[in-house]
């Protein structure tokens, strides 16, 4: 008959419980290493193999490169149209040198669509930011050179 009294007991007993609210703008959630936020890009590693652009389900990646004096391909432009990117992380999966990787940047709101056109400069900056935020997760300089040399 008085089942609702039990319910009242449940709600009142939760009063001293620890609060779960995260004070968001001051206190940001700590996202794990695998988190798929906005991409970051390391130009030295890119071999212009075009695999990321081909695997992308929404075709939001476009890139171009040219051969330098050593007949080696160098990336020139790398753009992600973030309007249509669905953050599926397929591009990072196929990248042979891990030149394109995901970061934990997640605040994506903006006033204009133009801001969602992420070029190589932006993506590289994002990489630098990421390394600054997570010094433990950054690839050592020597490894970058080793991979780039391959």
């Amino acid at each position: 008959m008085f089942g609702f009294l039990k319910g009242l007991g449940v709600t009142i007993s939760q009063l001293p419980k620890k609060k779960v609210t995260v004070m968001y703008p001051e206190e940001k959630p700590d996202y794990p290493e695998r988190y798929r936020g906005v991409h970051r890009f390391i130009p030295e590693l890119c071999t212009v193999c075009n695999q990321c652009a081909r695997i992308c389900p929404t075709s939001c990646i476009s890139l171009s490169g040219s051969r330098d004096e050593n007949r080696k391909l160098r990336i020139e432009t790398y753009d992600i149209n973030f309007d249509i990117c669905i953050l599926c992380s397929q591009c990072t999966e196929v990248c042979p040198t891990e030149a394109i990787v995901m970061s934990d940047t997640f605040e994506l709101a903006s006033y204009t669509r133009d801001d969602f056109y992420l070029d190589m400069h932006w993506l590289h900056n994002n990489e630098l930011e990421y390394e600054r935020r997570h010094p433990d997760r950054a690839i050592p300089e020597t490894d970058v050179q080793k991979k780039a040399g391959n």
Binding site: T11, Q14, L15, K17, K18, K19, V20, T21
Partner: peptide, 10 residues
């Protein structure tokens, strides 16, 4: 808010 594990207006 307290009963719902929140902190309410702050």
């Amino acid at each position: 808010g307290w009963m719902q594990w929140r902190i309410g207006p702050n």
